[in-house]
Amino acid sequence: MRKALLFIPFGVFVVLGVLFYMQLGKDVHYMPSALVGKPLPEFQLVPLESSELVGHESLPKGPYLINFWATWCPSCSIEHEYLMALAAEGVPIVGIDYKDEADAAKQWLLDKGDPYAVVLQDEMGYFGVDMGVTGAPETFVVDSQGRVAYRHQGVVNEAVWQTLQGYMR
């Protein structure tokens, strides 16, 4: 009996080891959004190309992507090329020009091309707060029911799209 007890520390260690192994390589910074499964929050924003406030009626019929971007964000220019490719495949993307200047944003889209179905300006970042955005770029999937299905922080690329695609229902 006493002999068996001496194996307890070893046993606990083995369990911990397996646990650590399972956790290795996971992205610890990944944070799911609290909005997942909930309807997209209401908003009143001005599109880049006009001066009238619009709300949900300006959005495409789902499923679609919402992409927070800005001209001050270096990672956004990295993902831009991939967004162009997605748009060419017919994926509707709503761009939220986050805490940015309209003129700079227009110039950016002229220079690099415009992958967005519509671009809404969130100059003060209020919609960003409603969506729980912590920085740009961030991308949300909204499903055909108008509910937030998934949130991705950081650059969208081929690997990320594999994940996002699964939520486009």
Binding site: L6, F7, P9, F10, F13, V14, G17, F20, Y21, L24
Partner: peptide, 29 residues
């Protein structure tokens, strides 16, 4: 974070700590 480093340290941890605890279990009796 670098997964290859993690795997290496975990392996070290298993070899050094695991074998010590095993030795303990066998000998401390």
């Amino acid at each position: 974070a670098d997964p290859t480093r993690g795997v290496f340290i975990l392996a070290l941890l298993v070899v050094i700590i695991g074998s010590s605890l095993l030795l303990y279990a066998l000998r401390a009796g």
